[in-house]
């Protein structure tokens, strides 16, 4: 869907910058990019830099940035281009002057828990050094401080249960079971 929108509008002065929030690095997200045949750029934000900047606890997120680098719209958690509303917003953004877009921003006013972010960071260092079980232990502590930080929680799940994420489609019913069990 993104590729289709990009293809339609790429001759205008527009760009899509896709950001994979994958702490595991490019390998896990790259198949999605290849499958989509995406010709716009995708980068990897394994440190959750943009999550912290935008105060985001979940994905998918969209930020519309105008020609001068000013943020014109933010949608945290609901920026799904398969939804008619988001698709329309993208079309409008690509075809109308940047000042014309007046969709209501969806932001998060509850600050992220600093302790959780520190623990997530510490876990990242351990993960990259190959200390998997110590890394996941730090991330689990992080979730205790910020239970609704799905960026941390789902990253933990993906590392601990790769079969639920990388064998066929992502298993959302398994995720719901974990939530129901309070995990």
């Amino acid at each position: 869907m993104w590729q289709q929108l990009y293809q339609t509008h790429k001759d205008s002065e527009i760009e899509i910058l896709s950001v994979a929030m994958d702490a595991q690095g490019p390998a896990k997200a790259l198949p999605y990019v290849e499958k989509a045949g995406a010709t716009f750029t995708t980068v990897v934000d394994g440190d959750n830099f943009l999550g912290q900047l935008l105060n985001a606890r979940a994905i998918p997120n969209g930020v519309l940035i105008d020609e001068q680098g000013v943020v014109r719209h933010i949608n945290l958690g609901g920026f799904d281009v398969h939804h008619a509303e988001t698709k329309q917003l993208v079309e409008d953004w690509f075809t109308q002057p940047s000042g014309a877009v007046d969709a209501a921003a969806v932001t998060n006013e509850t600050p992220l828990d600093e302790r959780a972010l520190k623990l997530f960071e510490r876990g990242l260092t351990l993960y990259r050094d190959g200390n998997m079980s110590e890394a996941t232990a730090e991330w689990r502590k992080a979730i205790e401080f910020d239970p609704k930080n799905w960026i941390i929680r789902k990253q933990l799940w993906a590392v601990e249960h790769p079969d639920k994420f990388y064998v066929g489609d992502v298993d959302y019913s398994w995720q719901r079971e974990q939530i129901d069990k309070g995990l």
Partner: peptide, 24 residues
């Protein structure tokens, strides 16, 4: 994600940009 090249947001200055955050 494809070649590790450092991409800067400022490369997009002068264009309308959609920053789209997702994950595997």
């Amino acid at each position: 994600i494809t070649d590790g090249r450092a991409v800067r947001l400022s490369e997009y200055r002068g264009k309308k940009v959609i920053l789209f955050m997702w994950a595997s």
